[in-house]
Amino acid sequence: MTAHAEPVVAGPSQQEGPALAARTRGLRKTYGRTVAVDHVDLDVPEGAVLGMLGPNGSGKTTTIRMLLGLVQPTEGEVQLLGHTMPERAGDALPDVGALVEGPGFHPFLSGRENLLRLAAAEPRLTAAGIPPAVDDALERVGLSRAGGRRYRGYSLGMKQRLGLAGALLVPRRLVVLDEPTNGLDPAGTREIRSVIADLHHDGVTVLVSSHLLAEVEATCTHVAVLNEGALVAQGDLTELLESESAGLEVSTTDVTAAVEALRAAHLAARPTPDGVRVELTRAAAPDVIATLVGAGVPVYEARRSRTGLEDLFARLTQDSEEAPTWTS
């Protein structure tokens, strides 16, 4: 890749924007000749629930691991809660909870013992504060009763929830969850969603990576899309979706007349099964409707087309050779 696509940026520009919980500039990681992450400038606004999307192998996990100081970037800088990583990890990480690459626990210890061991390393906890913190975290993910059982016997969902409990041992400013719903049944997924919603409600910034689009659409305020190691879009979810769908769907019985009228007015239009679709690049919606009505075309209904995240994602990630060029 020679030129780097300018990613879609929705919302206000960074300078006067809200404070960022995490920020990367020119982040790059190579393993030998393989480029895992390529010049990523990621912004995670404070208080946001940012969904990081991307196909498998797009660099999501590597980016997250660099954010958390687990991996040394080849190039570029990382700021986490205002501290440079990985050098100032000691300042940033106590306020960050993370579940990366699945839950990691010892099978021969109970869930509670595992959390106690993890909590021993939490700088924010006093020795006396460890047991109550562990019990609270277990309670929060609904594992209070299973806490005494060996981790070996946990179901996939329980393991995932224990991992989440590990990330929530102390009140955090930022919670990073890598594929938190992996292996969860619908009920488990709902629980995770509600935990994320609670965190959001408490003003905690959440960074969730997922390949499940519906998941992200349902829980996130912001989104960042990675493809082949590059950040191809990021910003406020609603704005991104709207910027993408600059079109008007018009339902009419006289498609031919409609297309002719619009073309005469130099408006791009193409027929759809129940009418026409007009690109809103040159004219606003009322002008389009006025043109059609003026030409005597019967207009039954007109609405802004809203493509879902799925369409956006497909467009962003399918033809990576020709990176999208649209901007807000």
């Binding site: 000691g90 300042d91 106590p94 010892h106 021969f108 210890l109 013992e113 106690l116 061991r117 021993a120 390393a121 939490e122 700088p123 924010r124 906890l125 006093t126 020795a127 006396a128 504060g129 109550p132 913190a133 102390v170 009140p171």
Partner: peptide, 30 residues
């Protein structure tokens, strides 16, 4: 919150980590 210490502490005390490590080693069936 009473379980919190001064935010100044950046890392858990080594003695606590060693104790946790020893508990882990000697709880291990192997």
């Amino acid at each position: 919150m009473d379980v919190m210490t001064k935010p100044a502490r950046r890392t858990a005390p080594a003695s606590r980590l060693v104790r946790a490590e020893l508990r882990w080693i000697f709880r291990r069936p192997r």
